[in-house]
Simulated assay, not measured.
Amino acid sequence: MTVIGAPGVGLAILLENVFPPIPSEVVLPLAGFTAQQGNFSVVAALLWATAGSLVGAWLLYALGAAFGERRLAAIADKIPLTEAGDVHRATAWFDRHGARAIFLGRLVPGVRSLISIPAGVDRMNPLTFTLYTLLGSALWNSLLIGAGYLLGTRWHLVEQYMGVISRVVYVILVALLVYLVWWLIRRQRRAATAAKGLPQDEQD
């Protein structure tokens, strides 16, 4: 950021979108601090960060679109515990709540980048995708860049507090994953029981 200026913020955030292990919770507050030092303006940092977010989101959207619902459904049919219908139901859910999911997803660590992939699989309206990605990204970027600017040399405190939030989010995601696996196993047992013609309550 110091060497190439505000475009460095956009490049860093582009990489953060494509490679989620690069944390925006570090990059953005540091960009705010760098702006405070006079290397570039806060507005420039925000504009470039949001541009980087949008480009990265569109790359992941394109990946999801290239993969496609049909191919994903075919793969789901071959994976134990899942079936093509799961993909179709997820796509139907995204049709109904996609805009809200994109906006809120851009504000959740660990989710903000990956939310663009199901949007691509669903072939979400490009204008809608762009609008809600811009809104969510601009809000996220403004909060973290602004915090870094206000904290100055203590910009790293943002990452410490956001790290706690990130860990909570990851715990919730793991819990949801465990629940999903349990539900899929239970569904498979029910299907096997029904196929054998056994009473429903005997499966338990």
Rank of each mutant, 00 (worst) to 15 (best):
116 S>K: 09
146 G>C: 12
140 W>P: 08
63 L>F: 11
170 Y>E: 02
150 L>P: 01
134 L>C: 07
50 T>C: 06
65 A>I: 00
91 T>I: 15
166 S>F: 05
160 Q>D: 02
92 A>G: 09
59 L>V: 14
104 L>Q: 03
172 I>K: 00
83 E>H: 15
98 G>R: 07
82 T>C: 11
54 L>S: 04
128 T>Q: 04
74 A>S: 14
113 S>T: 14
126 P>D: 00
48 W>K: 01
147 A>M: 14
100 R>L: 14
117 I>H: 06
172 I>D: 00
67 F>W: 13
108 V>C: 05
71 R>S: 12
59 L>K: 04
150 L>Q: 11
132 Y>T: 07
81 L>N: 09
67 F>I: 13
80 P>M: 14
62 A>E: 01
114 L>G: 09
84 A>S: 15
86 D>V: 13
147 A>C: 11
157 L>F: 06
85 G>S: 12
143 L>K: 09
135 L>R: 08
92 A>H: 11
100 R>N: 08
143 L>N: 08
85 G>Q: 14
89 R>F: 08
53 S>R: 10
96 R>D: 12
112 R>M: 08
143 L>C: 12
165 I>D: 00
146 G>K: 13
155 W>V: 08
116 S>Q: 09
61 Y>C: 02
89 R>S: 12
53 S>W: 09
155 W>C: 08
155 W>E: 05
88 H>E: 13
116 S>I: 10
66 A>C: 01
110 G>L: 10
131 L>S: 03
124 M>A: 02
77 D>H: 15
82 T>Q: 11
128 T>V: 13
117 I>A: 03
92 A>D: 13
56 G>Q: 06
168 V>P: 01
162 M>D: 02
164 V>R: 02
60 L>Q: 04
56 G>P: 09
51 A>R: 04
142 S>C: 09
55 V>I: 15
131 L>Q: 01
137 S>L: 11
58 W>Y: 10
143 L>S: 07
163 G>W: 01
155 W>T: 07
114 L>E: 07
157 L>C: 00
157 L>P: 00
61 Y>V: 02
133 T>W: 06
154 R>K: 07
165 I>E: 00
67 F>V: 14
90 A>Q: 09
89 R>V: 14
125 N>Q: 05
141 N>I: 04
106 R>K: 14
153 T>Q: 10
120 G>C: 04
70 R>I: 05
113 S>H: 11
168 V>K: 00
143 L>W: 06
160 Q>I: 10
108 V>F: 01
115 I>K: 07
83 E>N: 15
119 A>T: 06
138 A>H: 04
78 K>M: 15
171 V>C: 03
82 T>Y: 14
126 P>E: 00
51 A>S: 12
95 D>R: 15
87 V>H: 05
116 S>F: 09
57 A>G: 13
158 V>H: 03
122 D>T: 11
162 M>C: 08
81 L>Y: 15
